[in-house]
């Protein structure tokens, strides 16, 4: 029997009301993916967030969807989102022009363990659009590079045309303190890099498994097999972090859509230690 608690004083902020943002810049990342930079129309100079968190983005009259923040947490003056076009809302979002206004609620959810990872080697494993939610963590970590050990980014895409943030990847690749390996599922003749799934890169990647934090974002199967490969190398499942995705209608724990077993991905996730999700991920249709 729960006691009735209606005696506390409650505050009246409405977590379902979007704030208004103007599109300041649009970058085409690939044939189906684009990045928008947003500034507040309501006078907020910054949009503080933690790497791994997401916002609910509302396109006027069309709908609202969860999208991770892909910008730099140390530069919160612009709010940055990278979106892949897959359906109604993302398509409508691509039609927007510089100067157009969208609704933003957030930031919501849990973050990558950027602080806790200090002193460790870091392995980032991204699949497709999964690189976007990891980018804020990369920015933040590279800004304090000396606090971390080896850093490896393993990135898998469907084809060379799907590779996101190319310029940035090239710039990072030129550094001597960060190793980047990219692989594609299907290559054209001009591609001279790796071909095959991203998990194949794990056995040879240079990191100390007993002293590594892994941050993994991509399709669910990819994350599961990545975690299995990392564990084969000796990485503790408590040190592997994944970002989960489910249908979301509210992001604040009211709509029930994002439930995954006992957790709500919108408020307990999206970032979880793999050890916490491990058993659930082996079951069907959770």
């Amino acid at each position: 029997m729960v006691e009735n608690l209606l005696t506390e004083k409650l505050t009246a902020a409405d977590p379902m009301l979007p704030g208004l943002f103007r599109i300041h810049r649009i970058l085409k990342e690939s044939y189906d993916t684009f990045t928008v930079e947003l500034v507040s129309l309501e006078g907020y100079q910054t949009f503080p967030f933690e790497a791994g968190q997401f916002n609910m983005l509302y396109v006027y009259g069309v709908g609202e969807i969860p999208v991770s923040i892909s910008g730099d947490p140390l530069h919160p003056e612009t709010l940055v989102h990278t979106t892949r076009v897959v359906g109604t809302v993302t398509r409508a979002m691509r039609e927007l022009k510089i100067g157009d206004v969208i609704g933003v609620r957030g930031p919501f959810g849990s973050a990558w363990p950027v602080q806790a990872a200090k002193g460790n080697d870091l392995v980032f494993v991204a699949g497709g659009i999964g690189l976007a939610p990891l980018r804020p963590a990369l920015y933040q970590i590279l800004a304090q590079r000396d606090r971390y050990g080896k850093i490896v980014l393993l990135y898998g895409c469907r084809s060379p045309e799907d590779i996101l943030f190319r310029k940035e990847l090239e710039k990072w690749r030129a550094r001597f303190d960060l190793e980047i390996y990219v692989t594609v599922d299907y290559a054209n003749t001009r591609w001279h890099g790796n071909v095959g799934v991203v998990t194949k890169l794990i056995p040879k990647a240079p990191f100390d498994p007993l002293n590594t934090i892994a941050m993994v974002c991509g399709p669910e199967v990819m994350m599961r097999f990545t975690a299995i490969e990392l564990q084969k190398r000796g990485v503790n499942p408590d040190n592997i972090y994944i970002s989960m995705e489910r249908n979301m209608k509210c992001a604040v724990g009211f709509c029930g859509h994002c439930q995954f077993g006992p957790t709500f991905i919108c408020k307990n996730g999206p970032v979880y230690p793999y050890s916490q999700m491990q058993n659930w991920l082996t079951m069907w249709e959770i």
Binding site: M16, V252, G253
Partner: peptide
């Protein structure tokens, strides 16, 4: 339902 809408992380006005 009070627990869902009033006493979780967020509050439904």
């Amino acid at each position: 339902q009070d627990k869902v809408f009033l006493y979780s992380e967020f509050m439904d006005p």
